[in-house]
Design a protein around this nucleic acid. Structure first.
Lengths: 335, 335
DNA sequence: CTGAAAGCGCTTACAG
DNA sequence: CTGAAAGCGCTTACAG
């Protein structure tokens, strides 16, 4: 394996000088830098990152931790985050963790290895972070994306999110405005997912504002197509009076659409469906999904900006961005 | 930050002994091991991987390189691969690279850092690997997944794939068996993608077997929904006589279904669609997609088994698994 | 079974 | 501007 010593020997300089050229340090003469760079290029040499990270006190890396591998919303946000970080001249280390893994412990373990300047957490519960974060959010600037922070005890934790209570209410209000009264909800588990709890809460408020109520016309399950399918099937067999369903994610909504079809019902002819998140797929399916779009790119960019400001010594901010109702074919007027 | 030295001090042993306990080496007395482990557990200590990988000659890691971040087929295969590796008592390092990045160079760079026992490559062109692999596939056992190796000059390269020519032909044969004669194809670029070239070739053969021909009724584009949408729109405006379309991936097929809808055509009423890959989503959309399913889980598990055998000194094998035609609602009988 | 020591490939004060 | 040297946190022969 080729190392920095080989490059040094071949370029006729010391290892220190090669290191300086590699990391673009200014204290190298033009002539030397050019000569060394030529050797580096010739071998397409890149410094071993294990050694680099082991020694380096301060990396120009931002750690991005994503909870859940199958989340289309997160997938698209990670891309925007990465683009914004690259534009800022920093590098990104993305680490995925299972939906039921301990993401805070995971991040804590990565920090001494990556020595990032800051970290962006996608889908990480604020309460959990506050409780078990020792470094992340305490000594390390941290931004939560998509998860709201209510009361922050940690000066280095910022957040960019949408208002899930308001969004849940908006979904219902939209369905009501189209004439629906008998509305069911398919979502995540309000006990383990703060986001689900908030959207459910919002849905309840949206209904009670209209003098309606949800009662037991909701099912809590996982954020997947198959779960959305099962939950919708169960919901409609218990409540055949439903004319509309609010699914707390687009992926669930796709499962719901299929479930309706399998039940011999038509969407939106018999039952309307509204989703949540606004992923690309939502506009491709037939019928295209009415959905509440989280401004993915904007959230990602704001998240990075806020993190950079935090790293530069700025104050924590908690930003709430509005969702946008994306019209589509999956909801029809009722009556 | 807590290090192995802190653990050693607290447990009253040397750093070497802690290291042995950490890596489960047998040459530690029961009593010592228990005592050290208690301290490790108490601090939830994990060895810094930078230091570990830097020093360690031989890791128990398998490197998995995935080309393309948005590939649903790969996403599901990675999961199966990871499960099989874990079952074998090894650990997995997954690295994603953009569709147009140089995956071989990427893998080569990772090897000295991760020192894996072997590597599994998803979506990597065999020719490219043979040409530019210096370590990967040469000194490092390597398995290509989904990409066939025709003639292998490299004794450490195995492969598990489906026969893309046969699959392409099968897609056409199926459509013909349902009465279709005017068939178009939407796929990847045959110049840059061997898989696309093979499927296109297969499609041509399938047609000529029936005394039919493809002529210019095909469009080469990218493997995405939007590309599938555009290509289908273009294809049908140039060839309104088409009654069926073969899309070389399910994602493209979803774009095609939407395009038909947008053109005011019905699927399968006016135009039938057959996809390729058999991703989960294909069975959820309405109409559900007829598709050629690559046996994802089986391919992943065979790939890992073959890699382990290769690592153990076995011979290279090139396994071709059959695709399975998944019935669905997106194709109707014609005439 | 255990410890002292060398060294993995880098970066970074420190001198010059 | 450049180099010699120390050291990051581990693993692993080597002795005992």
């Amino acid at each position: 394996m080729i190392t920095i010593r080989d490059i040094a020997r071949e370029a006729g300089v010391s290892v220190s000088t090669v290191s300086r050229v590699l990391s673009g340090k200014p204290d190298v003469s033009q002539a030397t830098a050019v000569r060394v760079q030529a050797v580096i290029d010739h071998h397409a040499f890149e410094a071993n990152r294990n050694a680099r990270f082991l020694k380096q006190a301060d990396t120009s890396t931002i750690l991005v931790v994503v909870k859940g591998r199958h989340n289309l919303l997160f997938a698209s946000m990670v891309e925007s985050v990465q683009a914004a970080i690259t534009e800022a001249g920093l590098s990104t280390a993305v680490s995925y963790i299972d939906e039921d893994g301990d993401e805070v412990a995971h991040a804590e373990r990565l920090v001494p290895e990556l020595k990032p300047q800051g970290t962006i957490l996608l889908g990480v519960d604020a309460g959990h972070l506050m409780r078990s974060g020792k470094r992340v959010g305490v000594s390390l600037p941290t931004v939560l994306l998509t998860n709201v922070v209510r009361s922050s005890t940690h000066p280095l934790v910022s957040s960019v999110a949408t208002d899930d209570v308001a969004s849940g209410a908006e979904a219902i209000t939209y369905l009501v405005s189209r004439g629906h009264r008998d509305i069911g909800v398919v979502g995540g588990d309000p006990v383990t997912s703060a986001i689900s709890a908030n959207r459910l809460d919002g849905a309840r408020r949206g209904l009670s504002d209209q003098g309606l109520s949800l009662e037991d016309r909701w099912v809590a399950t996982r954020f997947s197509m198959s779960s959305g399918h099962e939950a919708t099937t169960a919901l409609l067999s218990a409540h055949p009076e439903l004319t509309a369903i609010y699914a707390m994610s687009d992926i669930m909504a796709l499962g719901a659409l299929r479930a309706l079809h399998d039940l011999g019902l038509r969407a939106p002819g018999d039952v309307s469906v509204i989703g949540h998140d606004g992923v690309e797929l939502a506009s491709y399916v037939v019928p295209s999904l009415v959905t509440l779009r989280q401004p993915q790119d904007q959230m990602a960019r704001r998240g990075v900006d806020i993190l950079l400001a935090l790293i530069a010594g700025g104050e924590a901010v908690h930003e709430v961005l509005p969702v946008e109702l994306v019209p589509g074919e999956s909801v029809r007027d009722w009556r």
